[in-house]
């Protein structure tokens, strides 16, 4: 067993884990944070995407021990005081989800993308979400949601007024 110290959604954690424990299983099974889904389990689909020090990563391909000393953010950590994060709000307003399985990963990938590129073009959004698959093929509304979130975060207009 290995001792890990990390911050998850702003809360300091200290846990003993097996070195082979994957970050996604640490989050889901030890901490009960079940937003990150295990989809393909092969670093392809992105349903398990979380932020590690603010950067999007696939938590099925990160060991929990590799996250020691770092900050993890999951979809549960986005809303503040019951108010949806602008990316979450935009996904709701633009109907950027169908079955919802890919949604937590899409949302976290989007938060990471907009941190790196606050004003992406539509093409940059599509490339920026290359690591996230939607089996409902709901990509058009997802892209609209990301563009709406970018505009909302820029304070230009609210998400509801965007017609991308």
């Amino acid at each position: 067993m290995t001792q890990i110290e990390l911050t998850v959604n702003g809360e300091k954690r200290s846990d003993e884990v097996e070195p082979r424990l994957l970050l996604v299983h640490y989050l889901r099974e030890l901490l009960g944070l079940r937003a990150a889904n295990v989809g393909c389990d092969t670093t392809s689909c992105g349903a398990c995407t979380v932020l590690l020090d603010g950067k999007s990563v696939k938590s099925c391909t990160v060991l929990a021990v590799q996250a020691s000393g770092h900050e993890v953010t999951t979809a549960e950590g986005l809303a503040v005081g019951g108010e949806l994060h602008p990316v979450q709000a935009a996904f709701r307003q633009q109907h950027g989800l169908q079955c919802g399985f890919c949604t937590p990963g899409m949302v976290m990938a989007t938060v990471g993308l907009l941190a790196e590129n606050p004003h992406p073009t539509e093409a940059e959004v599509r490339e920026g979400l290359e690591g996230n698959l939607c089996r409902c093929t709901g990509y058009h509304n997802i892209v609209r949601a990301v563009l709406a979130a970018a505009q909302a975060q820029a304070g230009q207009v609210t998400g509801e007024q965007v017609t991308a």
């Binding site: 992105g46 995407t49 690591g131």
Partner: peptide, 9 residues
């Protein structure tokens, strides 16, 4: 290489 998440790691 891969996709953004892969390039972050």
């Amino acid at each position: 290489v891969g996709d953004p998440q892969i390039r972050h790691r």
